[in-house]
Write a protein that binds this DNA or RNA. Sequence first.
DNA 1: AATTAACCGAGACGGTACGTCCTGTCTTGTA
DNA 2: TACAAGACAGGACGTACCGTCTCGGTTAATT
Lengths: 204, 204, 204, 204
Amino acid sequence: MPDSTRRSERSRHAILTAAHELVAEVGYRKLTIEAIAARAGVGKQTIYRWWPSKGAVVLDGMLAAMGDPEDLALPDTGDVDADLRGVVHAIVEELAEPGLSGTSRSLMIEMQDDPDLAEGVLERLLGPQLAAIADRLRAAQDAGQLRRDLDLSVAVEMLIGPLYHRWLLRTAPLTPAYADTVTDLALRALAPDRLASHGEDRLE
Amino acid sequence: MPDSTRRSERSRHAILTAAHELVAEVGYRKLTIEAIAARAGVGKQTIYRWWPSKGAVVLDGMLAAMGDPEDLALPDTGDVDADLRGVVHAIVEELAEPGLSGTSRSLMIEMQDDPDLAEGVLERLLGPQLAAIADRLRAAQDAGQLRRDLDLSVAVEMLIGPLYHRWLLRTAPLTPAYADTVTDLALRALAPDRLASHGEDRLE
Amino acid sequence: MPDSTRRSERSRHAILTAAHELVAEVGYRKLTIEAIAARAGVGKQTIYRWWPSKGAVVLDGMLAAMGDPEDLALPDTGDVDADLRGVVHAIVEELAEPGLSGTSRSLMIEMQDDPDLAEGVLERLLGPQLAAIADRLRAAQDAGQLRRDLDLSVAVEMLIGPLYHRWLLRTAPLTPAYADTVTDLALRALAPDRLASHGEDRLE
Amino acid sequence: MPDSTRRSERSRHAILTAAHELVAEVGYRKLTIEAIAARAGVGKQTIYRWWPSKGAVVLDGMLAAMGDPEDLALPDTGDVDADLRGVVHAIVEELAEPGLSGTSRSLMIEMQDDPDLAEGVLERLLGPQLAAIADRLRAAQDAGQLRRDLDLSVAVEMLIGPLYHRWLLRTAPLTPAYADTVTDLALRALAPDRLASHGEDRLE
DNA sequence: AATTAACCGAGACGGTACGTCCTGTCTTGTA
DNA sequence: TACAAGACAGGACGTACCGTCTCGGTTAATT
């Protein structure tokens, strides 16, 4: 996001790197703007000038560290089951990894009290991921592999809502077997009726 | 949690009440121990003596305000669909309500960085609710209304995971219609195969 | 000072001992009632019951550690010079010793803001010492060895005022040579005129 | 003590003024850093940043309120008796005045446990006053009005040691008559022998 | 090339809250 | 029933950060 009025690209980069490193080292809660500034060798004002909140810096730091989002699109092999199973496994894997997991958990937390951050996280971090899944589901729906009356946003939630629930509440570990179980159940919910003669269910 | 060495029941009650009131008034983030102490007419040390963190006080305050948890048990009318639809509607309603919602959202936030609080929230607030749903599901399973090979904890997550996902990410509003949709889809996932002749699915 | 209504002589003694030890270990300023109570194995209330202030406890502890004050009376060898030189040397020695010095310095300090303590220190600690010197001076005066028109309390101050000044302000070390110098000068001030024919000085 | 890195002269002045006012209003013991900060409209950290202790602030406040120390030099009318009598009267007057007296008494107290403060008080507050007296005494000595073998620092103590002794111990009130008495006696001690033919006294 | 205006680092500033310590009083349970 | 033990309300401590605000000292882009 190069801003023409911004002078020091070096500072911007150092800030994002410092934020990303520090959030991994001390956790989001103990992260301070002063520490980021010190680590980045930057005046506090330089941070306050360009970012409205700690969360915004961390979000940018995370996005910068993730690199290009071109690989978000799900493969479409024609096999819905396999494709979705793949993405569920990938998410479970990602959420199970302690490092990244902590940061994004903190971001999801912080957005609860910070509407601007919420918007940012949703539009730039989570939104694209959800949209990618929805896209694949739409293709499957068009191919008649999923119920025609599905609300795709709900469908996505049926797939990954359980994962996030377990991840946030830490009620149980996130394992590949769990990914399979969830995929199975979700697909059962999303699949068309075996006898497609009448799709008059009460689904909206 | 009556402690034999604790002296002033009056103070304990005043603290929990103040915490509950204040978290509703100013929100969790802006809530301070000093404000709780001042409102409760209590020395700060009295709070620090009995609670390890702000989150712990708020959790206790919330539990105290909720009263006895005997009414958590779901009704069992014999009609799984209706009973679960009822609890999903209740949860959606609760999560949609701004006041309570904010507090528990904050607690879920705080537990991410505080394992002790996480344990407390899970065991005393969320655990019982999840267990109540699991109990009802078990009864339905025993009655042959749900798949025999269900992992009940996963089943619970299929029901309410989507709700929490939408609630935390604020991707869309929580409405009664949404509650119905989720119930329908979840039940479809949990129901036994129409032709029970072959339950060989890969569910664990 | 055994009080008939006092129950535990053991407690009283333990408190005074603890106070005396602690003031030597951590200094008066860092001495706390709580520490005295803990060291003495006594409830705080037991201290507050019998002493009005920290200073009072320390004063009593000091007096208890000093033992009987019978040896305060100065010798009267008939030689004023020698007798006073002796007491000045003794005081200088005492003030130069770090341990005792610190405690009594602290007491003199504390009395500045605590009239009750001031009275106690004056009547029970310093008063008797000053009176002993005054007594010896009076004897000398009666023997014609000192000016007849001397105000004895001022005379005492001429002798030991300089010592305390140097001690409190730490402007220079207190040495035996200094004791001699002060004694010489003070005696010169207090001695009768060489030609006693006219004592018309303006001394009151 | 202007520090090149110090920014707000306004704050510095407000702090010193507040300290000076408050110590007069509530006394040194009850004076708190928080109260100074509040009165000065300043953050506590701004005080802690520049002063190591409460005593240091009060000392600076006192020095600031006293203004330039150029008028410390004693007059030299050629009449030692009159000049010294004047300064003794001035000191007695100053010590007898409740306001200033309390503050400097507190400072003398505090320096007992705080070597840094002791150094400050000595060098910046008391030292110059003592030096001024010593200077006058030296002139008198050079003029043959005082004993040639005098240690001037001891001589100063003979003059004002008695005053401070009475002031600190409050054994008796400080009156002009007392000032005269002390001056008379001290001068008698410091004066050269009437028959100056042999100054071989034991004075060092 | 000189001027100038924004940005930069550094960190002081007025504040708020922290968690600790101690005060002097009050309460409980033990001997 | 006097005591040790220590909880209590209160309040100051000294620290950590907040977000704002000067300070010079570089940069660019404009004169």
